[in-house]
Each structure stands twice: as structure tokens, then as C-alpha cells.
Nucleic acid binder design. Structure first.
Lengths: 364, 364
DNA sequence: AGAGAAATTCAAAACGTTTTAAATTTCTTG
DNA sequence: CAAGAAATTTAAAACGTTTTGAATTTCTCT
């Protein structure tokens, strides 16, 4: 690529002042102007005021590129968005996007998005890194042994993860206790007398799904129960997949009917509700349903009839902590103090009730 | 914001070579290494080869920040995405995104996205411009007297527009002939004997909707027809709005029933189909339907039953021309030669047929 | 061998900013 | 007033790359 300098200059913003302009007008050095604007303590307050006023008047704006060249920092952090073949993205996409944009803005940082449709999870990071413009990355949807982690750590690129790829990791993250998401739900249902509890989990490839399955199975094992394989399922995150599976479970075709189902999301719960209705089961009289709720506008648990009992962890609550963690990490804070674990809140609503009479037999 | 240099350096990529490393190893000047890598004609081919091989071996990658500082170019172009209050975006979003990303990559450029939920259309551009990192912008969904255009032109920032805000504009664009979208549909329907043709248009605030209304009304006027106001409607781009309006039209509550409807999108056509079915009308026997088709995967005209007659202009076809126009414009090509107008293709399928017997009376 | 032309490479400046360490100025004290 | 300390400002180098115009090298011809 042949780069030109002469013609391009006409596209530069007219009237933009540099430190040099300010220094000439005030009879100060460029270094002093820079130190004044950056609030260095040894600069006289009066000098600081004069510099600030002149900068304002001349419309000075720092050249971020020049800053980046010297400091290695641009104030821009990246996020890669995975696009599916059908041109959709995870439904949480915009929620995260807007929350993260706002949170980063409070730290004078900008979010830079890029999309990816490829098969190599690392390639888009490599590509964005090549520009050498970004300060760091925000990662989400971790898988066990996430190759992105290895790559970014090897390259020494700061990043934070929404979720985590393992229990103990060497990077900053914000994660809910996914074991507790399942075990809390199981404990509530056990307390209500349920013994045949099924898990409708998220996609197996994600780390959160592994943790939830582990938490579910551990809680069931505490009660002395071993759940049949058919009733612990990892499925695609859509209502129709949930509907089909729930139909099989509730029709008795897969074995004894569960009296309760723990769902990975409110979307799956909607499918379960529809299946229960279609086989003539009443929620919660015949079947109790608990779901995990990311508190997305489109899938509100309170919009369900009956209202949905949930483990609730608003996705949006992750944005500010993640943004701050990333900026702090870029500033030099060690990873260990930037790892946030939160427990989802159990909110009992109408979709859970006592196990039906005569339906307290455990899984065989 | 206080910027630091010392501690941050530990995040720099290990082992990255600079031009200086190459020049030292080969005993050449930094200038020659640069000129060799940038294929300057006066550099000896043998020298070029030696430089290229050494760069490859040392893992040299250009520091884009340094290039940007000298040339004013970063190879990154921006696009602002409007997010609605319900956390959704235009359904064309991902289609444009992926197409544009690929097209820009072929020009060694990257797309940088930012989201906006505010009320001021100009503010996000101002904010992104403040970083002084982007080479230009891609704009879409123009409105008449688009304030973004005025702002970016005043600031001398290169941009291209998908669509245009007026008939004659001073910036590069890629646009379909929206007048012809309507008039082509009307002409087809007139040729089939239809006289009572209604227009279900897009949102009035967009420039394309104005053009389509004008084209529709002009084509109907050619036939000596004046369409009643009630049958030329600007509506929200969703199926339920279309369904409700079509019900009113087809029930006869708004006046004589139209024998044909021209829809702004396939989404609206789906609403019209549903309404026709619900009032017992047959498509195309009782009602012909033509829609504009952006050829999005989710809203395929061939997925309709009966298959849909459309004016077709795949949204994706805009991506490469827009990407190239922007890079060329940044390179100095004048706007006038970067303005592309395309005519949508008329594809006649099953949803259009002759006007029903005894239904050839024009609008009153 | 010398002169002139052509080919090739180089030194230096530029881009705008930050920061180290030195220089300069101001203040305090005897 | 002079000396010393503290406060403030500055010169210079750095960041990595590009490009102008000059310098150097190579080639050709007499």
C-alpha cells in the first residue's frame, strides 16, 4: 500500500490547533503546555489557567495518534462480534453494546467494534491487533481452553472477559456463579418437594454451560439423586428447540415426567411453557419452571403468564465493572484484584409451586 | 486524563521489529527500507527483495499509528449505528456490516463501529471525530436536509452515503432509483389492468420514502389517476403495522378496496398477505402485491406463498461500491465520479395477476 | 581516465505529543 | 546582597514512519 501525504492534507480538519500554536501564543515551551494540560503538579496554577483558556479559545484537541505513538495508548478498546451464518448475532448484543459504550465513555474511552464470521476465533483479534491502535479487548462467551485467551496473553494484550473460561484464570473477569445458578434453583425446587428435576442447559461448548451442569448435578447428588442423562440436555438457545425437547420430556416419551425444569434462559422457558400448555399440563400445578434471567428487555420474566421464577443477573450490570476493570488493567492493576464474581439473585414468582400430589418419586 | 509512558510499555507486543531494525541489519537507511517496502520505483529490485525478506523474517509489521501521524491516514473508517430504545437496530444492520467489512478489507481498510442512542444525529460523529483516528465515515438512512452531511462537509471529513438526502448532492453515494421503484411497480400493475393501486410506503422521515411516494404519484398521475390520501400511507417498518393498515384497506372501511398494493418492503408485504387471507381475499386473484426487496436472508421474497413480485436491489450489492467510493474519495477522487445510481430489477412472480373482473374502476 | 547522466541511497525534517533531566527563575533566609 | 532551596520551565530526545531534496554510487560514452 502506497501512502501519500501531500494530497491528503486537504482533508485535515481546518483550524485545529496544536500544542505548538498554544506555546507560541503564550510564549511557553511545548513541554509546559503539555504538562499544564495534563495537570502535572509542578506547573504553576496560573500557567495552567492561561494554557487551558488558550486551548479552549483555539479549539485545541489532542491528537490521539500522536499520543498513542508516545504513550502506546489510544483510549480505544476493541470488541469482536460473532455473526452467525443467518446474519444474526446473539440477542444480548445490543444490550452489551450500549451499556459498554456508556461505561467506557465515563473513563474517556471508546469502544471499537468489528464483526467476524470466520471459523478461527483468534484471527479477528490478530487482524485488529495489526493496526496497533487499540489499548485492549473485551471478550465474551468464553469456551473452556479459550484460544483467544492464550493468544492475547502471549502477545501481552490487556483484556477482560465477561464470564470465564475456567474456575481460576489469570485475567480480569466479571462472572456470575453459574454453579450456584443451577444449585440455587435445585434447592428451591427440592424444598418445594420436587425430586424429578430436569436441566435444560445452554450450548455445551460454552464454559458457563459446563459450570451450570456441574452445579445442577452436584445439587441433585446432595439429595442422593442421579438424574438420567436424557433429562440433562444442552440445547440451542431458541424457543423452538426448547419446545421440542420439553414436549418429549412432558409427554413421557423420554421416561418419567419431570415435575420441574431448570432452564438456561427465559427464551427456553417460553418454549417449555408452550409445550406444557400443549400437553395439557398446568404451570406450576403440574410443572414448575425456573429460568436464568439476563434481564434483557425483549425477554422479560415478568411478561410470562404465569410470571417466571428466575435466577436473575442483569447482563447490563456487567458493563460498568468490565469497562472499569479493563481500563484499570491497562493502567497496570494486576488481574487478581479485577476478578468479580457475583451471585445471581433468586426471585420466586408464580411459575414454581409444590410438587404435584403423588409425584414425589425420584428419578429411577 | 493523565497519560503514562513507562509502565505501559510492558504491554507492547514482544519482538515487533521496526524499520530501524531492518535498516541496521541490512546496512541501509531507514528511508530506503521504507521506500523499498512501499514499492517506490527508484529502489533497486534487488534491494527490495532483501528488504522484503528481512521484514518477513523479523516479523515486521507497520506501526499504523506512526503512519497515521505522518500521512494522516489510519486505514480505519467509521460507521455509527442507531440503536432504538428497545435495544434493536434496523434489521439490515448485520447484512451491511458483514458486507462492508469484507469490502473494506479488500482495500486494506477496517470498519470501526460505534453505537448511538441519542437524539442528536451529529453528536456521535463529533465524538468519533475527536479521536482524530478515522479516515472517513459511511452514512446510511439519509433524511432530507441531513444534518450529518452539513457537519461532515463543514469539517472536511470524507464520507459516503448509502442512499442520498436529495436528488443532487455534493458527496459520493450509492443509491437505487427510488422513484423508479414505485413507478415500475405501478406500470406493471397498470399493464395488468389495475387502477385502484395503493402505496404502503416506508417511514416519512427518510429521503427514500419521499422519492418513492413521488414516483408512485407521478406514475398514477400519468394514467390520469389521483390516489386518495388514505391509500398513500407512510408506516412503521413492521409486519403488524402493515397488517392493521391492510385490514382497513381491504375491509372497505377506508373507501373502495384497492386491487393492488405496492409495499415498501417484504416485511410489509407479509402483513398485507396475512390481512388479505383474514378478510378472505385471494392473492393474486383478488389482490396483487408488489414489494421492494432488499434481498435480506430473513425476509426472502421466494419464501412467500404465493411467491412475491418485487423490485429487487440487494442491500449487499451496495457494500463494495460504497467501500470503494469511500477509499477512492479519501484518495482524492472527486465526489461527482463516485455517485452511483442503480435501477432496481423488476422480478415478476406469483403475487401479481390481472385485475379482478369488474374491478377496473379507478379511484373516485 | 574523465565527464556527464542516470540510478540509487541517504540525511534530515516532519508529523504532534510526552517525558526526562537539565536549566532557569523565584523565593527564603542569614 | 548572596547563597541555597524550591518552584517552574525548558531543551532535547523519543515514539515509527514518510518524504523531500541532496548526496553518493553506478553506468555510459568519448
Amino acid at each position: 500500500m502506497r501512502l501519500f501525504h501531500v494530497d491528503i492534507k486537504r482533508f485535515e480538519v481546518e483550524g485545529l490547533a496544536t500544542l505548538k500554536d498554544i506555546s507560541e501564543e503564550l510564549g511557553l515551551s511545548v513541554a509546559t503546555v503539555s504538562r499544564a494540560l495534563n495537570d502535572f503538579p509542578e506547573v504553576n496554577p496560573k500557567t495552567k489557567r492561561r494554557v487551558a483558556e488558550t486551548a479552549e479559545r483555539l479549539g485545541y484537541r489532542p491528537n490521539r495518534i500522536a499520543q498513542r505513538l508516545v504513550t502506546g495508548r489510544s483510549g480505544m478498546v476493541g470488541m469482536i462480534v460473532k455473526i452467525r451464518a443467518d446474519m444474526s448475532a446473539d440477542q444480548t448484543f445490543f444490550e452489551v453494546l450500549t451499556g459498554m459504550t456508556a461505561a467506557l465513555a465515563s473513563r474517556d474511552a471508546d469502544l471499537v467494534l468489528a464483526v467476524d464470521q470466520g471459523d478461527d476465533p483468534v484471527a479477528p483479534y490478530r487482524r485488529m491487533m495489526e493496526r496497533n491502535i487499540l489499548d485492549g479487548f473485551i471478550l465474551n462467551a468464553p469456551v473452556p481452553q479459550d484460544p483467544r485467551v492464550a493468544f492475547l496473553q502471549e502477545q501481552g494484550i490487556p483484556f477482560v472477559m465477561h464470564g470465564r473460561s475456567a474456575d481460576a484464570v489469570g485475567y480480569p473477569f466479571y462472572d456470575i456463579d453459574n454453579r450456584a445458578v443451577s444449585s440455587d434453583a435445585v434447592e428451591l425446587l427440592l424444598a418445594l418437594g420436587h425430586r424429578r428435576i430436569a436441566l435444560m442447559n445452554g450450548e455445551a461448548r460454552f464454559a458457563y454451560a459446563s459450570a451450570r451442569r456441574a452445579g445442577f448435578e452436584a445439587a441433585m447428588a446432595e439429595e442422593g439423586g442421579k438424574v438420567p442423562e436424557a433429562f440433562v440436555a444442552d440445547i440451542a438457545p431458541n424457543e423452538s428447540a426448547a419446545y421440542a425437547l420439553a414436549l418429549r420430556w412432558l409427554s413421557g416419551r423420554a421416561g418419567p415426567r419431570p415435575t420441574a425444569i431448570v432452564c438456561a434462559s427465559t427464551v427456553l422457558a417460553a418454549g417449555v411453557f408452550a409445550a406444557a400448555r400443549d400437553v395439557g399440563l398446568h404451570v406450576p400445578g403440574d410443572l414448575s419452571v425456573v429460568a436464568h434471567d439476563d434481564a434483557l428487555p425483549q425477554t422479560r420474566a415478568i411478561n410470562f403468564a404465569p410470571t417466571l421464577t428466575v435466577t436473575r443477573a442483569p447482563l447490563r450490570d456487567a458493563c460498568a465493572p468490565l469497562a472499569h476493570a479493563l481500563i484499570d488493567h491497562i493502567d497496570g492493576t494486576p488481574s487478581e484484584v479485577l476478578q468479580t464474581r457475583v451471585r445471581a439473585e433468586m426471585i420466586v414468582r408464580e411459575s414454581t409451586g409444590p410438587a404435584p400430589e403423588g409425584e414425589s418419586d425420584p428419578w429411577p
